[in-house]
C-alpha cells in the first residue's frame, strides 16, 4: 500500500548539507502494524513526516520515491497532498498537551477535519465527532465535544487526537510516539485502543517509538533505524528472537529486566548516537559496536530476504 524507495532527506544548514535520512526503503502492507524504533536523531520521525508531506522547512531536500497506492507522493502538488492528508493518511503526534489548538473545543476541531474533506453539514459533522469520541472511549461524548483541550487529562487528549485522526477513516495511520508522554497505566489503555481500532477500521499503522517494549506489544513487523538508515527489519518474531544487527541486539540487552535475577551491571552501549553533522562514510554504528572489524569502515548494504540487516557480519561483501 505504501512503498518508500531510497528516501533521502537532507537539510541545508550553515555548516553545510546534513543528511537526516540516507536511503531508506520500506513497505507497509494493508492492515499491518509496522513498528519503527530508533533513538533521537535516528530519522524515524523525519522519514514519516516526509511521507506525510509535513516537512515544511524550506531548506529541506527530499529525494527518492514514496508511492501510496501506486501514486507517487514526492513532487505531488501541495493541493493534492492536502486532499490525501487527513483523509487517506492520518497522523497522531507525541505530545497530546500541545497537539490540539488551545482555543477551540475538541468537537470543533474534529468537525473541522471532517468538513475539510467531505461535504457534510455542521450538524452531521458534530454527530460524527460524538460517535468518534464514543469509539475511543471518552465518557459522555455528547458533552465532551464542548470541552477545550486544557479541560482534558493527557490520556483523554490523546484519545481525542486519535478520534480526530480516524475521523475520515484513513487507510494509513502514522503514530509518532503516541504513548511516550503518557503514564504507564494510561499507555496500556492507549495501546489497547490502537489495537482495537486497527482491527475495526482495518487501517495500516506505522507506529514510531523508542521503546522496544511497546514494539513487542503492538507491532507485526519492525524496522530498527540508526543514524538515518535502516539497521534491521523483519517480522516481530524474527527480530526479537534472533536479532541480527549488533545494534538491535545491544539495544535489547541494555533494557533492565522486569523479572528474574537482576544483572550486576547492565550491558550498555558505549558512546552516544552520532550527531547529524559528524556521520562517517562507513557503518554509523561501528564506533560503538563490540563486533566491529576491518570491513566496517565501508557502508554495509541492507539485505533483502524478509529479515534484513545492514551489517557486514550478516552480509559480507
Amino acid at each position: 500500500m505504501l512503498s518508500v524507495r531510497d528516501l533521502r532527506v537532507s537539510f541545508c544548514t550553515e555548516q553545510g548539507m546534513v543528511q537526516a535520512i540516507d536511503g531508506v526503503s520500506f513497505d507497509v502492507a494493508e492492515g499491518e502494524i509496522l513498528g519503527v524504533v530508533g533513538e533521537s536523531g535516528s530519522g524515524k520521525t523525519v522519514s514519516l513526516l516526509a511521507v506525510m508531506g509535513l516537512i515544511t522547512d524550506p531548506n529541506a531536500v527530499i529525494e527518492g520515491s514514496i508511492k501510496y497506492q501506486g501514486r507517487e507522493l514526492v513532487g505531488l502538488s501541495a493541493k493534492d497532498m492536502r486532499k490525501l492528508r487527513g483523509r487517506e493518511i492520518a497522523m497522531i503526534f507525541q505530545d497530546p498537551m500541545t497537539a490540539l489548538t488551545p482555543v477551540y473545543t475538541i468537537g470543533w476541531q474534529i468537525a473541522e477535519q471532517i468538513r475539510a474533506h467531505e461535504k457534510i453539514s455542521a450538524k452531521a459533522a458534530e454527530q460524527r465527532a460524538i460517535d468518534l469520541l464514543q469509539e475511543v472511549n471518552i465518557p459522555n461524548p455528547a458533552e465532551a465535544i464542548h470541552l477545550y483541550p486544557h479541560q482534558l487529562s493527557g490520556g483523554m487528549r490523546q484519545r481525542a487526537v486519535i478520534a480526530m485522526a480516524l475521523s475520515c477513516n484513513p487507510s494509513l495511520l502514522v503514530a509518532d510516539e503516541p504513548t511516550t508522554a503518557l503514564d504507564v497505566t494510561v499507555q496500556a489503555q492507549i495501546l489497547d485502543l490502537v489495537r482495537k481500532l486497527q482491527k475495526n477500521y482495518k487501517s495500516a499503522v506505522v507506529f514510531i517509538t523508542h521503546d522496544m517494549g511497546v514494539i513487542a506489544e503492538i507491532a507485526d513487523r519492525v524496522m530498527v533505524m540508526y543514524a538515518g538508515r535502516i539497521a534491521e527489519r523483519g517480522s516481530k518474531r524474527e527480530l526479537f528472537s534472533e536479532p541480527q544487527h549488533p545494534y538491535t541486539q545491544a539495544l535489547l540487552d541494555s533494557i533492565p529486566p522486569l523479572e528474574g535475577k537482576r544483572p550486576h551491571r547492565l550491558k550498555s552501549i558505549p558512546g552516544a548516537p552520532p550527531a547529524l553533522l559528524h556521520r562517517s562514510t562507513g557503518c554509523a554504528f561501528a564506533p560503538r559496536c563490540a563486533k566491529r572489524f576491518d570491513a566496517c569502515v565501508n557502508m554495509p548494504i541492507l539485505t533483502a530476504n524478509g529479515h534484513d540487516a545492514a551489517c557486514f557480519k550478516v552480509n559480507p561483501i
Partner: peptide, 22 residues
C-alpha cells in the same frame, strides 16, 4: 512552529485556514 499547527496540517487543512483560524 507549534505542534497544533502541525496537527492542523496533518488534518489536510489549507495553509490559509491554518494561518487564519489556528
Amino acid at each position: 512552529q507549534e505542534d497544533y499547527v502541525r496537527t492542523a496540517r496533518a488534518k489536510g487543512l489549507s495553509e490559509t485556514r491554518i494561518l487564519l483560524r489556528h
